[in-house]
């Protein structure tokens, strides 16, 4: 593995300045993904800027009723936070459905959002992958693609985003606070991620060197009735083959508001706006939920091995919304 230098920045400005000046540097959070990729030769930074010592590890209740979560708050701590558990159960459940206890103790909020796809071709330098080596081709397109995308993929990349947390955050209209060389910026999480298109190596809209410093959850009283359901190939410690984050607000049985996002189906956490539009203003029923999922998944283009993801995602949409409606 490549020898690298290690830097603990004095503050956020120092971190961003160092990364801006060093083209092959990378931020180090919990290291649960980056260190693996360095050993595999998939990522080869020559400098690690360890941001875990920065004062970004607090959870703060905001005057408007929202919540700001520092980028280095560990996944386990966030999942256990009483306000998260009370006001955003979808978020706590998504966190606890991910990885293992040991990994959650290490993984940070910001790092979780920027983890890389677990597509097996991306993780093996002996195989073609446009995301890892632009122009080398996508071996997954006609390879073993059971775990990969059914929506919004391109000929250049069929990878999925692996994060459970990001799916919940997408449903909650979370804002990502970013520090860049020339100032700070707020990015809605749905605008943070890109479709793969012709350039799957560009995964986010972040500028080079940008550092996620916090995420901001807007106030959403309806989110007290929210949940996350994840289906995976074993009962624990596996990435999703299908997942749904949902917030449902009913008024006398009529859908007043709904937020729905899917995991494991696309290059980014998939906010199901079309399904939401189908549901909103209508009397809720499981049949309506099924129709909404059908609308959302109408453009699905399954690959050779992952056709099951379409009925699976539909099934868990109906399940989750029906359970929320009757809770």
């Amino acid at each position: 593995m490549r020898a690298f230098r290690y830097h603990r920045p004095a503050d956020v400005a120092d971190a961003v300045a160092v990364l801006g000046a060093e083209p092959q540097a990378a931020y180090l959070g919990g290291g649960t993904n980056l260190v693996d990729l360095m050993k595999l030769g998939v990522q080869r930074p020559d400098l690690l800027v360890d941001v875990t010592g920065l004062p970004l590890d607090s959870v703060e209740e905001l005057p408007d009723g929202g919540l700001r979560v520092g980028a280095t708050v560990r996944n386990s701590d966030l999942a256990a936070h009483p306000v998260v558990r009370r006001d955003y159960p979808v978020l706590a459940r998504a966190l606890l459905a991910a990885a293992s206890g040991q990994l959650r103790n290490m993984a940070t909020t910001g790092g979780n959002l920027l983890q890389r796809t677990r597509c097996v071709y991306f993780q093996d330098t002996g195989k073609a992958c446009n995301k890892r080596a632009p122009g080398s081709g996508c071996a997954a397109l006609h390879g073993q693609n059971r775990d990969l995308a059914v929506l919004d993929w391109s000929e250049q990349c069929v990878a999925t985003h692996p994060s459970d947390l990001a799916v919940a955050l997408a449903a909650l209209d979370t804002v990502v606070e970013v520090h860049e060389t020339d100032g700070t910026r707020d990015i809605p999480i749905t605008a943070l991620y890109r479709s793969p298109g012709a350039h799957p190596e560009r995964e986010t809209t972040l500028a080079r060197g940008a550092l996620i410093t916090a995420i901001r959850l807007p106030p959403l009283p309806a989110a007290r009735r929210s949940t996350y359901l994840k289906v995976r190939d074993r009962a624990s410690f596996a990435f999703a083959v299908g997942s749904v984050a949902a917030v449902l607000d009913l008024d006398g049985g009529v859908v007043r508001d709904v937020r729905l996002a899917y995991g494991a189906v696309a290059h980014r956490p998939w906010r199901a706006y079309r399904a939401e539009a189908e549901l909103r203003g209508r009397m809720f029923s499981p049949e309506l939920a099924g129709r909404a999922a059908d609308v959302e998944l109408a453009e699905a283009r399954p690959l050779r091995h992952n056709g099951f993801k379409v009925p699976l995602t539909r099934a868990i949409t109906v399940r989750v919304l029906s359970e929320l409606a009757s809770s």
């Binding site: 677990r118 993780q123 093996d124 073993q144 074993r234 009962a235 624990s236 990435f239």
Partner: peptide
């Protein structure tokens, strides 16, 4: 075999 690690070659865990 492309799923050549324990994250992608799944082995039963206790909650199964």
């Amino acid at each position: 075999w492309v799923n050549h690690d324990l994250a992608t070659y799944h082995i039963t865990v206790c909650p199964d």
